[in-house]
Nucleic acid binder design. Structure first.
Length: 233
DNA sequence: AAATTGCTCAACCGCGATGGC
DNA sequence: GGCCATCGCGGTTGAGCAATT
């Protein structure tokens, strides 16, 4: 017995959306909202689509203020910084880039930004398995059991493990391999099941200031995402 | 001009989380 | 507390287009 399908696959249309379908869905949601039930929505709208498909279409394409196309340098920096700190939490990263969707950012990272980073630092191409939590702990950047400090004197603390990175050097092209390496070390430390964080709280400290960045989990059904990383100085 | 290869991005899939009963 | 339906997320796929051979 496998998992029950989310909808009747036989009666569901798949593949690209037609302009008519887009219009139907958009009109309905603008007039009535989602009703808090995506599964029931296609029937109400009169679409032969899976509820999940409708939700995705709305969130990634139809909802207002969606920004498509070229990412700016500033957006690149934000993506790199957040990827370094929280990994592939695309919905959280998207919440910091108004108008961008998690899918967009994910695609952008996988197709362009990642390559850009690799090109800037070929040492990143080594297998992730070569980087271990232990290697982080043993690194010269290690300063205490629960915090790291990078060359910019910025350290990042998380209750279940910590990491460091230099966002400025990553995106400027002047990055040292140590800084670039730390990006992926950071990522791995978060991807380690034993180090997963549930409340997405990140403590960032540097110099005399201490900041706490808290990423709360996200997305309302009307497409507005209330994820925020708030910085409390 | 045709065939092949590479790239992009919309859409799908599966699974964990969540909330209601 | 357990079950079920639904939501939301991240990883992956594949169609379509562009670039190259």
């Amino acid at each position: 017995m496998g998992r029950a399908p989310c909808c009747d696959k036989a009666n569901v249309k798949k593949g690209p959306w037609s302009p008519e379908e887009d219009a139907k869905l958009k009109d309905y949601i603008e007039q009535h909202g989602t009703g808090g039930n995506w599964i029931a929505l296609p029937q109400k709208v009169g679409l032969k689509r899976c509820g999940k498909s409708c939700r995705l279409r709305w969130l990634n394409y139809l909802r207002p203020n969606i920004k498509h196309g070229q990412f700016s340098e500033a957006e690149d920096k934000i993506i790199c910084s957040l990827f370094a700190s929280i990994g592939s939490r695309w919905s959280i990263i998207a919440s910091q880039l108004p108008g961008r969707t998690d899918n967009d950012i994910k695609n952008y990272w996988n197709t362009k930004l990642k390559k850009k980073m690799m090109a800037m630092n070929p040492s990143l191409q080594r297998k992730p398995q070569q980087i271990t939590l232990l290697s982080i702990l043993q690194s010269s950047a290690y300063s205490s059991p629960s915090s790291f400090r990078d060359s910019n004197n910025i350290s990042y603390y998380h209750p279940h493990g910590s990491f460091s990175y230099s966002s400025s050097s990553l995106v400027s092209g002047n990055n040292s391999s140590a800084n670039a390496d730390s990006l992926f070390q950071a990522q791995e430390s978060f991807m380690d099941p034993k180090c997963q964080f549930k409340d997405s709280s990140i403590f960032v400290s540097g110099g005399e200031a201490t900041a706490m960045a808290t990423a709360t989990s996200c997305s309302s059904s009307d497409g507005s995402c209330n994820n925020q990383i708030s910085h409390v100085m």
